[in-house]
Design a protein around this nucleic acid. Structure first.
Lengths: 342, 342
DNA sequence: GATGTTGATGAAATCCGTTTCATCGGTGTC
DNA sequence: GACACCGATGAAACGGATTTCATCAACATC
């Protein structure tokens, strides 16, 4: 019943464990006849070396982890997909740690992962995307970073020296804004997102700055913050449409809220983009699935995950790498935006 | 640099490693003063016990894994969410193994996970959902099942004796069929899904059986198989609409294909449900996000994941549990279905 | 006062691999 | 023929925890 070990193999083959180990890892020459004899017995017993014992002495586990807020939000599976594909090619297995946006759960996982001696951690969103990350939380990451490679994705810890990779969200917001301006929109609103998250406020600020160049702005009553869900987008949009003077275009913090916004708009009997233009963010699979198809900003999500693993792998290998990598976003124009009505 | 060990702690505290271990695990009485002295030093050094060493001797890793086909399909994150939440409560960390539907990758992961000595595996979809699982693939799972607990979710390996939990897809298909019949539909089609997967054919068969009771059937030309993607649903639906005598209602293999079907229908200038009724399957978040909102069959996805972990946990604990558990589906009627046009 | 029990602790074995070091026979070189 | 070197192999240390067993003091019991 108990799994068989390298010793069992050695005994049955009348060789030492060292020799079995050499056969297994091809780490030193073994006489062909010996090798075959050992291999036959390994095969026969379906022997599977204990990775724990191996990792214990080699000080590497072939395991990495990703900590992220919400796997049910389609942005994250896409990142994970890119990351996992790349990781498998490089010989890693992936822990997926879903925190639900709960920072204490991030801490728990950080501890567990270090105890499990993962080779590296990808930290995606969560506390590193906070507008103001509490000192204590930041410190925890910095401390962890001293003991194992960490890559921050879409976020930052100031002066931490931690490596990071992110999509330039300000640039993306500018693309969206410029697109709407080009279409003649002047009355623009923003929908969705927690105000304490950078992913929300970076976009808002970039939009405001761009608008200001044209003597425009998003007034307070058109800055509708909530969270990142479909329902929130729908609710914020509904409130916007009930105002005296609704905007002609809306930029949403992500695709989920944009879809909510579309629903609210249609339920109000308005047409898209005839009456109102809507722009999403992330270019998740949903964007092209809804009707009308969503104009949105692509972050090249798959690539983001892939590059994060590449970077982590380099760090694990001890190589020197750029501290920061920014991915440039791209505007995907579909059906949800059109000329401003007069 | 090298992480500090229990020996370092012991030496600095002037006690034996056994005592430190006792403090750590509370496995035997330790004098209060000793405990405090040790704890202080542990705290001071931020000592984190090596889980590899611990697992090696305790023969349990506190790690489980899930092998699934495609994390970017919204059905799977939902299952994972339920599973992960439950697992964390029970003290497990989760490996997520995404196979892309590639059976050889399933095999690779099976090997790796066994070497890493995971406490158990949840196998979701993939080869176990095949209409005819090749003997060799089945054998591999059966063999693995002899060495560690395995729970099959939404699938089966005949006569394997492996525990499983699944949603009664035949029942769900019958619900959808009955719903359409009640609305007066007689011309019904089926869209999407790989024909070699059980999740496709179980539904088809259940629908055919139900229709037969009413002297009806889905003729060959209305059985449109493809894969599980939005694009495939769109393509199959388009082909259906080009036929001489299009159906008045369509049941889709999942929500993704249903969304594709909706798109094709609208692009054809038809209205939903005025001209055509469409039913999805899975009740993913998308179902209520699209317009019109999708009538679909809920599998209680979160629960599926949660129960899978509960079952796995029981197996790991060596308890006796039911070999099979079936979850009953539920029809969620929204806007995409209505009375048949005359 | 002898014996038994409990509390507190340490020494050493154990888990299962990898790796260093040593040994030994055989071959090539001067 | 002496020496160096290489191929093939084994013995033993090591990694970092847990756990069994032994020891010893203090205290309770009769």
């Amino acid at each position: 019943m108990t799994p068989i070990t390298i010793y069992d193999i050695a005994k049955e083959a009348n060789v030492s464990v060292s020799t079995v180990s050499r056969v297994l890892n091809d780490t030193a020459p073994v006489r062909a006849s010996t090798r075959e004899k050992v291999m036959a017995i390994i095969e026969k017993h379906q022997f599977q070396p204990n990775a724990l014992a191996r990792s214990l002495i080699k000080k590497e586990t072939g395991t990495i982890a990703i900590i992220l807020p919400d796997i049910t939000n389609p942005f994250f599976p896409e990142v994970f997909w890119g990351a996992e594909n790349e990781a498998r090619d490089k010989g890693y297995t992936f822990f997926l740690c879903n925190t639900g946006g709960d920072h204490s759960r991030e801490s728990e996982y950080l501890t567990i992962l270090r105890e499990k001696r993962v080779d590296g951690i990808i930290f995606l969103g969560g506390r590193i995307n906070l507008q103001h990350c509490p000192e204590e939380m930041a410190q925890e990451l910095i401390e962890a970073g001293k003991h194992l490679p960490i890559v921050l994705v879409n976020g930052n810890i100031a002066k931490s020296g931690l490596h990071r990779i992110y999509t330039d969200e300000a640039a993306g917001a500018v693309l969206a804004t410029q697109h709407l301006l080009d279409l003649g929109h002047r009355e623009i609103a923003f929908v969705g997102g927690l105000k304490e998250m950078a992913t929300t406020m970076v976009k808002v600020k970039a939009i405001q700055k761009k608008l200001k160049e044209h003597g425009l702005e998003i007034p307070k009553e058109r800055l509708m913050l909530g969270d990142f869900s479909i329902d929130s987008g729908k609710e914020q949009m509904a409130r916007l449409l009930e105002q005296q003077n609704p905007p002609t275009a809306v930029i949403c913090v992500n695709d989920y809220t944009a879809i909510g916004a579309i629903k609210a708009t249609i339920e109000h009997g308005l047409s898209i983009p005839g009456d109102i233009s809507i722009v999403g963010y992330d270019d998740t699979p949903l964007a092209s699935a809804v009707i009308p198809e969503l104009t949105t900003v692509s972050q090249n999500t798959y690539q983001l995950g892939k590059l994060a693993v590449d970077l982590l792998h380099d760090l694990i290998g001890g190589g020197k790498t750029k501290k920061q990598t920014a991915l440039q976003p791209e505007l995907i124009v579909r059906q949800s935006t059109g000329p401003a009505r007069r």
